[in-house]
């Protein structure tokens, strides 16, 4: 059984694009999004990786890029994100002056703000979803919107 599973796994893996091809796709998207990011006005900054995420999402949604071409390298990067963030954490060493002056106040506000952002966002979204479920009549548009996901879901299933 386990051997069969293994062979099935390797078959699945062989559908994945080679690592260098995947890296090439990421590099191309980053290069293009960096150009777009430089065109954005200074008052409305849009960082290159955020543009890149939108680009990759659009390319996937339009079926120009297949998930298998970017999936495994993306999973590696996402799993590493805790580590990739270490230099940002250590960069606070350059700001120890501020920490000495009013660090306790600032850190306290940051901790509370983080919790505020998490809870307020989560509960606000929950409220809007509850509103939609509770009063579907008031939002007539949702009736047409409701038929869309079913169609999309069935199409997605068919493709699999």
């Amino acid at each position: 059984m386990s051997q069969q599973n293994k062979s099935a796994n390797t078959n699945k893996k062989s559908q994945q694009a080679p690592l260098l091809v995947q890296m090439g796709i990421y590099a191309s998207i980053l290069f293009v999004s960096n150009i777009i990011s430089n065109l954005a006005p200074a008052s409305f900054p849009v960082p290159a990786p955020v543009i890149g995420m939108i680009l990759l999402y659009s390319l996937l949604s339009l079926h120009i890029i297949k998930v298998e071409w970017v999936d495994s390298f993306g999973a590696i990067l996402i799993n590493l994100i805790g580590f990739l963030f270490v230099p940002s954490g250590i960069s606070l060493a350059a700001n120890l002056g501020i920490m000495k002056a009013e660090g306790l106040q600032i850190v306290t506000v940051i901790i509370i703000s983080t919790i505020i952002l998490l809870l307020v966002t989560a509960y606000t979204v929950r409220f809007f979803i509850w509103l939609k479920r509770k009063h579907p009549v008031h939002l007539k548009k949702t009736k047409t919107a409701k038929s869309v996901p079913v169609h999309v879901l069935s199409r997605a299933k068919g493709e699999n």
């Binding site: 990421y26 590099a27 998207i29 980053l30 999004s33 290159a48 990786p49 955020v50 890149g52 995420m53 939108i54 680009l55 990759l56 999402y57 996937l60 949604s61 998930v67 970017v70 999936d71 390298f73 993306g74 999973a75 990067l77 996402i78 590493l80 994100i81 580590f83 990739l84 963030f85 270490v86 230099p87 940002s88 250590i90 960069s91």
Partner: peptide, 20 residues
């Protein structure tokens, strides 16, 4: 540190996959 930090760029892009 900057070399490691740079890889946050492709890592951020990669979140398009779970979204998709």
């Amino acid at each position: 540190g900057d070399i490691i930090f740079w890889f946050l760029n492709p890592a951020t892009i990669a979140f398009a996959i779970p979204l998709y």
